[in-house]
Each structure stands twice: as C-alpha cells, then as structure tokens.
C-alpha cells in the first residue's frame, strides 16, 4: 500500500499527481501487480482532496491498463508499466546538457528551454 501526497502549489492537477505517484511507485517496485491502492476514503482522509478527484485518477489508471477496479472491494494494481529505453534517452539528454553548459547557458535558461519544448511536445498533458 502506498500513501499519496498532494502538493497544492505545484500547479499540477491533483488527479494527475495521484496518477504520477502511482506510476512512480510502480516503476520503483513499491507497488506490485495484485497490490491494492488506498480506498477513496483513505486517500481523502490523508490528503483532504475531493473524492471525485481520486475516482478520476483511478479511472485514468484503469484506462492505461495499470489498475483494475473490483466492485465493492477496491482498486488493484494490474500490471507494471512498460519500461521504455530510459537509460538511452537519459544519456542523450546528459550529452545535450554538457553542451549547454560548455556554451555558457545558465541553469534557468536551460530550464526555460526544456520547459518550452515540454509544453510543445506534451501539449495537454497536465502542465
């Protein structure tokens, strides 16, 4: 079982934070297939968010095939997410950042560039 945490200042919608934290826990192996996710009532009691938000997050996880609702029992992890080639992508990004650093770009500038590209390519996915 995991416990969710909501950061109200992050600007990321609460349901998206729940989805992200579940995905993250799956990647790290903190959640395994068959594990139960906290009930809506439990999430509400620890985070003070709207129950409908929790339901929305769980529906999203079900839609992605990561979780499965069992009527009257709760929501359970059904599968671990497919691991993409994270190492290769990360190495490419590291190379790019070394170049940015060598060219004298400061951190804020790099962050702005990254954010602009993220907004461009991941449009509509909860900024």
């Amino acid at each position: 079982m995991i416990e969710f945490r909501i950061d109200r200042r992050s600007g990321v919608p609460a349901y998206q934070q729940l989805v992200n934290q579940t995905r993250h826990a799956l990647r790290l192996g903190l959640l395994l297939p068959g594990d139960q996710l906290p009930t809506v009532k439990e999430v509400v009691a620890t985070t003070s968010i709207n129950p409908n938000t929790v339901l929305k997050a769980y529906r999203e996880l079900e839609h992605e095939g990561l979780a499965e609702g069992r009527r009257g029992v709760g929501t359970f992890v059904s599968a671990a997410p497919v691991q993409p080639d994270a190492d290769g992508l990360r190495a490419e990004l590291a190379g790019w950042m070394k170049r940015a650093l060598a060219d004298g770009l400061d951190r804020e500038y790099v962050e702005a560039l990254v954010k602009a590209e993220l907004d461009l390519h991941y449009e509509g996915e909860g900024r």
Partner: peptide, 26 residues
C-alpha cells in the same frame, strides 16, 4: 469528505478563505 466518498452526498460550502477550498471543491 469521507461522507462524500462513502455516500455521494452533495456539499455546498461557503468560505472566505479560498485557499481552503482549492482541491476540495469541484
């Protein structure tokens, strides 16, 4: 919130402190 989660009750909540309502109200 627990009562809403359990029964689907409707809530109308007035407050001056809007920050209190953020994330709670839909």
């Amino acid at each position: 919130l627990a009562e809403v989660a359990e029964t689907g009750m409707t809530v109308l909540l007035s407050s001056h402190v809007i920050a209190d309502l953020d994330g709670v109200c839909d």
